[in-house]
Design a protein around this nucleic acid. Structure first.
Length: 575
DNA sequence: AAATCCCCCAACCGCAGACAT
DNA sequence: CATGTCTGCGGTTGGGGGATT
């Protein structure tokens, strides 16, 4: 037995070695190229998981934990190395404001990045900010834990307390928001889930206008915004990130929000914007694969989504857009107001389409385009929006009652993309909802509630990463034989899921996700639940920044996408 | 040129959850 | 049900190296 942690037995008095129970001296410290090769070969042949078997089967003098860490952080395919981009930095800030020190979840939103990288990035800058006495977040970002202190905080990790309190010292709470003390200033997943709002709130002090950018947010502006208001009353002044490296000016890489000069000195703008990034999205490889096949320059970061979260009335969530984040090349979001006080969004194909006065925040453009009338928010719906999801959840669901209600342009730019994102997220949300209804709880997702997609002949036990939503051995995987099942669902959950409907949905999902080549498109050999994201950067690199390629999509693909449909009728608690 | 500071990064550690026995 | 094992997550440490003094 390999001993871990404090139980490790120091061998030979060397701090760089330890011994397992069998007397094998396990090495510590930096990995050599030879060790990397051994591990890489082993994992490619046997899949991930069963890390302790690496030492047993290869003789590699590393403990399982070390092997796993090395693979995850350095050897697995498609890791992004190098500095974080501005978009990534921005996203990290957003995510941290919302999630706190949930590095793994943050990493799930940053394809190719590891939790360790993000953690190091944050902590490094934290130190600098501490020294400089600067706030952790841009002045107008109120972290969720500031906005919504939760009395029922479930402290999953006792380590969080110290760290979060520590950070809290440097966070400058905004006066307009209560700063209710709690055991931890950071939201636990439970707290976030219990929070109906997934919006950030930006405060300045000069206007009373509340920008409701999340149509389902309970932070509905008391005064419905007219298109002119929305377009002429842009958000607060440009902010830059305190997390940017000092090497790049003070905060050069994070122009989080760029506002018209007329607004810069306007201190009273108070608005919210939607839950920044989708915490989980369909497997990036699935999405990217499809886009790759179609050569479609769709950018998935902005998508029309509908959240069938209970108690959302099924009739009332026809659609809405969540705007996770955007890159400079990303499509930009357009804020729509419908006739019923629940605004929606559409996407402009290119940032250049924006007037400079409403150019930022890039993920929060509020320019009106009134032709999005198909987005029908019924009056006075009851919305409940999960704010954080167990890691296998996908917050964004799109249900399109009638795709024909979109304009051609919107269809071209958005529909396929959004609909592609539906199936996986749909299922996940169904599962999540069902589990929630069944009394599920906890920060970690129940392994049993996860779908598993694995090669049918994949019998080895090495691929037992139980947290994988899709567990795929990247060498052995054959997407044409992909199986996605609910085999791991608890019976109770199955009962609550109305399997007939679910099977239909799953079948559609499979059809959706298996119509092309390899699933492990280099994104990751294993699609963990936390990897259920779209590799935005991959897409951006694959496609031009504008929408031209989107228009090249074939009718077949359009039709296929239109086939994606999900029925919620039989889902308990969803409608 | 040397000392110091600071950033970056890899890796380790402890803990807790899930699962197996 | 209890115990052991595996795994993942978050906190922490320490070394390398560049920048600054």
């Amino acid at each position: 037995m390999i001993m871990y942690g404090g139980e490790i037995e120091k061998a030979g008095g060397s701090a760089n070695h330890m011994s397992n129970g069998g007397g094998v001296v396990l090495k510590k410290g930096p990995w050599t190229a030879a060790e990397d090769e051994i591990l890489s070969v082993y994992v490619r042949e046997n899949g991930e998981g069963n890390w302790n078997a690496v030492q047993k089967n290869t003789g590699l003098a590393r403990c399982g934990k070390s092997c796993r860490l090395r693979w995850a952080n350095h050897l697995r395919p498609n890791l992004r190395k190098g500095s974080f981009t501005g978009d990534e930095e921005r996203l990290i800030i957003q995510l941290h404001a919302q999630l706190g020190n949930k590095w793994a979840r943050m990493a799930a939103q940053l394809p190719g990045r590891t939790d360790n990288e993000i953690k190091n990035y944050w902590n490094t800058r934290l130190k600098r900010l501490q020294r400089q006495g600067l706030p952790l977040y841009p002045p107008d970002i109120i972290p969720n834990h500031q906005l919504h202190p939760h009395p029922h905080h479930h402290q999953q990790n006792h380590h969080h307390h110290q760290q979060h309190q520590h950070q809290q010292m440097y966070f400058q709470p905004q006066s307009s928001q209560p700063n209710t003390p709690s055991s931890s200033p950071l939201p636990s997943p439970t707290a976030i889930n219990a929070n109906p709002s997934s919006s950030f709130t930006f405060h300045s002090t000069n206007t009373s206008t509340a920008y409701l950018l999340h149509p389902l947010s309970p932070h509905t502006p008391t005064t419905p915004q007219t298109p002119s208001q929305l377009s002429s009353t842009p958000p607060p002044p440009p902010l830059s990130s305190p997390l940017s490296s000092p090497r790049n000016n003070q905060y050069p890489t994070l122009p989080l929000f760029t506002f018209p000069s007329s607004q810069i000195n306007n201190n009273n703008t108070n608005f919210t914007f939607p839950r920044p990034p989708p915490l989980l999205q369909p497997p990036s490889s699935l999405l990217a694969k499809r886009y790759n096949n179609s050569n479609t320059p769709l950018n998935c970061i902005n998508r029309v989504s509908t959240a069938p979260f209970s108690p959302v009335s099924r009739d009332s969530y026809t659609s809405f857009l969540t705007l996770p984040y955007s890159s400079p090349t990303a499509q930009t979001a357009t804020y729509h107001n419908t006739n019923n006080n629940y605004p929606s969004f559409s996407l402009n194909p290119s940032p250049s389409s924006y007037p400079t006065t409403t150019s930022s925040p890039s993920f929060l453009h509020s320019q009106y385009t009134p032709n999005y009338s198909s987005t029908t928010f019924h009056n006075n719906p009851v919305y409940s929006m999960k704010q954080e999801f167990p890691s296998n959840q996908i917050p964004q669901i799109g249900v399109f009652n009638n795709v024909n209600n979109f304009t051609d342009n919107e269809k071209q730019n958005n529909t396929n993309l959004h609909r592609r994102s539906i199936s996986c997220s749909l299922l996940e949300d169904v599962l999540e909802e069902a589990e929630a209804l069944a009394g599920g709880d906890g920060d970690r997702p129940s392994k049993r509630r996860q779908l598993t997609a694995s090669p049918p002949n994949h019998h080895n036990n090495n691929n037992n990463d139980n947290d994988n939503f899709f567990s795929v051995s990247f060498e052995q995987y054959d997407s044409s034989e992909n199986i996605c099942s609910l085999q791991d669902l608890k019976p109770k959950e199955e009962e609550s899921l109305q399997m007939n409907t679910m099977q239909d949905d799953i079948a559609k999902l499979l059809d959706w996700g298996s119509d092309s080549g390899e699933i492990s498109n280099g994104q990751s050999s294993v699609l963990t639940d936390d990897n259920l994201v779209l590799d935005v950067h991959q897409l951006n690199s694959l496609f031009p920044s504008d929408s031209t390629a989107a228009e090249t999509r074939t009718n077949d693909e359009q039709n296929n996408n239109d086939k994606i449909n999900c029925s919620w009728d039989n889902l308990h608690g969803v409608s």
